[in-house]
Amino acid sequence: MAENIIELVDLTKKYGSFTAVNRLNLSVKKGEVFGLLGPNGAGKSTTILMMLGLTEPFSGSVKVCGINSTENPIEVKRRVGYLPEDVGFYPDLTGMENLKYIARLNGIPEKDVEARARELLARVGLAEQAEKKTGKYSRGMRQRLGLAEVLIKTPEVIILDEPTSGIDPTGIREFLELIVQLSKEEGITVLFSSHNLHQVQQVCDRVGLFVSGKLIAEGNIESLSQKLFSTESFVVEAGVNSSGKENNGNGLEEILKDIDGVTSVSQKDHTFYVGCSRDATADIAREIVSSGSELAFLRKKEYGLDDIYNRYFEGGEVHE
């Protein structure tokens, strides 16, 4: 098992009486793409700021690359690339100049600055816009320049705070592909915060769910859905043709309930929703057909992050 590159232990941050992050324990392994998922104001950004030593925790400890971020932020920042939410650049400088400035701040030798900046601009697809002032950049271009800037220090960890907000769908896809590619090719650990489920689902190996300062669940998508929907990991929708209307009714519902692993059955018009703890699609199909009903369609529904999210935030919103 790979070592933990990010380790948060009992991390707490308070603003006055408001607790932004509450006793957070989290570890991210080397080379992983980890998604921090949660609604706005859940404490994701605060957690990230604490990882970089930009704000001090109230209690608990943060270790990134084995270094305490609160005590030694400079060393952490040498190893960690951070792309803030809605990153900004000096509008009067060109993309190239902005990038070179950051390269110099990272102590990259003067003779390498130009070459490295050019290489990275090409890598994020901004080679042609290099001499354009960043004031004229679109949101997506700014985000890509931000990524180039994060990479110029050859980081071990990249932290992206809401990197995809405000980019168009194609831009998002390209951006996410770039991140995954990086993580796989260079073995860079990526921590990624978002409130958008689909993006997280597309790229992340593991996900942490964050609600009002607490990490309520952690794991990959499958294990998360198993944790949350322990009895019903799968739902099978079965459409039954109206010609068999008279002889199914309650009868079929009873039959379906008897199948091994089925936990609930509900009916709405001609569609049955069968909840089961294992993948029982084949059994359901067989039973429906052998009961004499006509099976119109059968659809296996897996829980996506959307459902996980809804399930949680339905509850979360009630509390707030």
Binding site: R78, V80, Y82, D86, G88, F89, I102
Partner: peptide
């Protein structure tokens, strides 16, 4: 306001 402060602060400088 330009969003450059957090970016510069994320670099290894005091």
């Amino acid at each position: 306001n330009r969003g450059t402060l957090s970016r510069v602060m994320a670099q290894p400088i005091h």
